[in-house]
Amino acid sequence: MIDVYSWATPNGHKVHIMLEECGLPYRVHPINIGAGDQFRPEFLKISPNNKIPAIVDDKGPDGQPISLFESGAILLYLASKTGKFLPRSDRQKFEVLQWLMFQMGGVGPMLGQTHHFRIYAPEKIEYAVNRYTNETKRLYGVMDKQLATHRYIAGDEYTIADIAIFPWLRSWQNQGIDWADYPHLKKWFDEISLRPAVMRGVQVLADLRKPLVDDKAREMMFGATQYQKR
């Protein structure tokens, strides 16, 4: 059994979807990041960077429990554990990994900043909004070009690269995106969204997440609490 410590965010949904796609049994433990659950000592033991998601697998590679944080690392672990969604040949595997790194180093951080400055920042800073919105559009363009000649992000097979990217694009409206500008990416997005495991994965914990409307939640996520030494 895999214990998943998570919340209904793009990074959380990446792991939820992967678990559903692989058909692995798992238990979900909500980590309400608006309430500060990510700073609890018991969570920090398995996720020292106080970020969701994290997992504990009671049957690790050597038969002993293993805990992991960082969603990309978790996707790689689950792919290795099940032999699914990551090709075996070196050439195909590294083609997938480069797009996984593209998500981890580009799509996630940049779209995250776009969300912050367009939606959550206490004051609208035009320079920041324009910078991150434009970078988001550039990244969408990179993916659209790739999908003009490939069915999936890393080629002709559905992989952890698709699983990693998809949840981040679900908030396309908040990112200032017009799908008409990215027809190949839109076709891919629509196909992925209809996969039964994806539909199940994005519903995990979704009923618990509420809009960030109170000052306490905003402080927990964006204020001084985030930077305290622990």
Rank of each mutant, 00 (worst) to 15 (best):
A180N: 15
F85S: 12
A161I: 05
G60P: 01
T149M: 10
L111K: 04
E135C: 05
L86Y: 10
I163P: 03
I177E: 09
R88L: 14
F69R: 08
G72F: 00
I119Y: 08
T82D: 07
K124Y: 00
P109F: 09
I55K: 00
I55F: 01
F166L: 06
F85C: 11
H116M: 10
I125C: 07
G72K: 09
L147S: 06
L86V: 11
R151T: 12
P183K: 14
Y77I: 12
D144C: 03
A128P: 00
A128E: 14
V142F: 02
T159H: 08
A164T: 08
N50T: 07
A54V: 06
H115M: 09
D144T: 01
R91Q: 13
S71G: 15
G108E: 15
G112P: 01
G155Q: 05
Q175C: 09
I177C: 08
L169V: 11
I177F: 10
R170F: 00
L75S: 05
R151C: 07
P48F: 13
A73T: 15
H150T: 05
L75V: 07
K59W: 08
K145W: 01
Y158G: 01
W172G: 06
T136E: 00
F69T: 13
G141M: 08
A121N: 02
L169D: 03
K186P: 01
M110Y: 02
S80A: 14
W99N: 05
E126N: 14
L75D: 11
A79M: 02
L97E: 07
P122K: 08
G105F: 05
L147H: 07
P65W: 01
N49L: 13
P109S: 06
L86F: 08
A161K: 02
D178H: 05
W172P: 04
N134D: 09
I160A: 12
L76K: 06
Y182N: 03
V107I: 15
G176T: 03
I74N: 00
P167I: 03
D90Y: 15
Y158I: 03
A154E: 10
L78G: 08
E95K: 08
W172N: 06
K93M: 11
G60Q: 06
D58P: 01
I52K: 06
G105N: 13
G155R: 05
Y132P: 02
T114A: 15
D144A: 00
N130R: 13
Y140W: 06
Y120C: 02
H150K: 13
I165H: 13
E126H: 14
A73P: 15
L111M: 15
K137A: 12
K186S: 12
P65M: 07
A79K: 02
I74H: 00
Q64N: 14
I160K: 03
F94M: 07
L169N: 10
G155P: 04
E70H: 11
M110T: 14
K59P: 03
